[in-house]
């Protein structure tokens, strides 16, 4: 269990994280938020890369501030942007990571490497140098390295950004599998990544924690607030675009789906909200049109 208490991060006067309180249990935890919400900062703090300005983080019985070296032994981390030594093959790289993460026995490392390469679908290129890999392949290798050493906490920052749809689906499934006996923190701004697999989630916005709970909690944020109606182009231009979930041309009119506390048009009909609707309602749709 990870307990985050009153965590803040400031860069001079700029508050990036503001008084975050959060408890993360075993399972896949989704950290959702728009760009600039402070997700990566929180990830880096949890990955022991960045000291917090105030507050505490406890991982099990260990304080992250006081015993970061112990916590690193339990960590697997994949940042949003990263490089891998291009001179190494996938196997060499994972072997190196395994050693750094404390997998002493060569047999154990070899076994893990093969399983991980298989799970990220890189077995065929196991002996090829990383410099020949595509962006998606590197991403998958990055995931494999995060899982190397069987860490109890895996932190993955915006992992699906460079993946094609098929890889993304495969990746979500992988995350679901690996989150069975450990904490997996998945930071993303893509709601679909969370929807299919996260047991718990939190939404960060402008450095503040807007919501914690599960998928339903987020979805409920838009309950009774999602409306479907047709309108003309003139009216469309007057609407707050942050609240528009979708717009589809229908003859001379436009069919709109938007989030609003009140009925936006006389002919608007209320519809069942999706997770994305809940997210929009929370982040940008909390006001009347």
């Amino acid at each position: 269990m990870i307990k985050i208490h009153s965590l803040s991060k400031k860069y001079r006067d700029n508050v990036v994280l503001d008084d975050i309180h959060l408890t993360i249990e075993n399972g896949l935890f989704g950290l959702l938020g728009p760009n600039g919400a402070g997700k990566t900062t929180l990830m880096r703090i949890l990955a022991t890369l960045l000291p917090a300005s105030s507050g505490t983080v406890e991982v099990g019985d260990n304080s992250l501030t006081k015993k970061p070296d112990i916590i690193r032994k339990q960590l697997g981390y994949l940042p949003q942007y990263f490089q891998i030594y291009p001179q190494l093959t996938a196997i060499e790289f994972l072997d190196y990571v395994g050693v750094m993460k404390g997998v002493k026995k060569k047999e154990a490392r070899v076994d893990q490497i093969h399983k991980l390469l298989q799970s990220v679908n890189l077995s065929d290129v196991a002996n090829k140098k990383v410099k020949t890999f595509s962006g998606g392949m590197k991403q998958r290798l990055g995931i494999a390295q995060a899982l190397m050493g069987d860490p109890s906490i895996v932190i993955i920052d915006e992992p699906t950004a460079g993946l094609d749809p098929e890889e993304r689906v495969r990746f979500r499934n992988l995350l679901s599998r690996i989150s069975i006996n450990r904490i997996v923190i998945l930071s993303t701004h893509i709601v679909a990544d969370i929807e299919s697999s996260c047991d718990q989630l939190a939404v960060l916005h402008k450095g503040k924690l807007k919501l914690t709970g599960d998928v339903d909690t987020l979805r409920k944020q838009a309950e009774g607030k999602v409306w479907l109606f047709e309108t003309d182009e003139k009216t469309l231009l007057r609407l707050d675009e942050r609240k528009i979930i979708s717009s589809k041309r229908s003859g001379s009119n436009i069919q709109l789906k938007l989030v609003s506390d009140e009925k936006p048009a006389p002919d608007a009909t209320s519809v069942e909200p999706s997770l994305e609707d809940g997210y929009i309602a929370l982040i940008g749709g909390s006001h009347n049109v």
Partner: peptide, 16 residues
């Protein structure tokens, strides 16, 4: 190559 490279910052999360 790594210690001072932002894209290699992640390796500092290892127990190295």
């Amino acid at each position: 190559r790594d210690i001072q490279s932002p894209t290699f910052e992640w390796i500092h999360s290892w127990p190295r």
